[in-house]
Design a protein around this nucleic acid. Structure first.
Lengths: 124, 124
DNA sequence: ATAAAACTTGGAGTAAACTCCAAGTCAAGC
DNA sequence: GCTTGACTTGGAGTTTACTCCAAGTTTTAT
């Protein structure tokens, strides 16, 4: 798979794919005449990265995780901690998201039920 | 309430509070000898803004919403649309978050059950 | 009244994550 | 054999959301 195909399949700009490689978020891609040929493993990585990035995991963290993975078995504990930390971060983010959604829903309902948004204590 | 008190109560830097005011995310705060005195309405605004920002709503959107509010009743439909759009954005974000969390949980479990992370098809 | 602490402003600087660009290479079609 | 088009690189530029700073003013404590 060429960079263009990957870019289209996953809606990630070619520039971004090269950038990810540069900063160690995906492994160096093997080339054919200097041109990147993405194999199955690379594709799997990219799909994983996309999922994590869309949830807001920082690039640095993901790069560090890949580095640990490539360092082998000895980094197992560290990887476990990293994954758990990130999982907890996301869970907290999900909480905040839920609160904001509930609040928006409340405001939306106010607007439906009552054109006048100036109910006591809700000036926004 | 002074800017310092608000800053401490809501864990928002003073600079950030002034910045929010500058970009129209909160209304101009009334002054006493040039010094900001935050009243109840301002505090409520700030608390709302904090909730929305922690969910990732862009500053531009929040500023636009405040502007619409201050333009009065005629902007009701537009405000409703804005709130719904943002609500939907957040809901989608929550979905992505959930997917990422599930995936991390899966990886964490793999690590617990099996030191060797190289199960078929999971190179990350 | 005067030194120290707290506040003000406008603008510059920073960090993260891209995104764009110029200049060069390389294989393929005519 | 030359042009076209896709690809490459390194580096500069952009956006968002702060965050810091210098220089000045005001308030408070002695």
């Amino acid at each position: 798979m060429t960079i263009k195909e990957v870019s289209e399949k996953y809606s990630i700009a070619e520039d971004t794919l090269r950038y990810y490689e540069k900063v160690g978020l995906i492994r160096p891609v093997t080339r054919k005449n200097g041109i990147r040929q993405y194999g199955e493993a690379e594709i799997a990585n990219i799909e994983f990265v996309k999922c994590m990035r869309s949830a807001g995991l920082p690039i640095k963290i993901l790069a560090q995780y890949l580095k640990l993975l490539d360092e082998g078995e000895s980094t197992k504990e560290e990887r476990l901690k990293l994954l758990k930390d990130q999982r907890n971060n996301l869970a907290q983010k999900a909480d905040e998201l839920k609160k904001a959604i509930d609040r928006l829903d409340y405001k939306i309902n106010l607007l439906y039920e009552n054109g006048n948004n100036k109910l006591k204590g809700d000036t926004r």
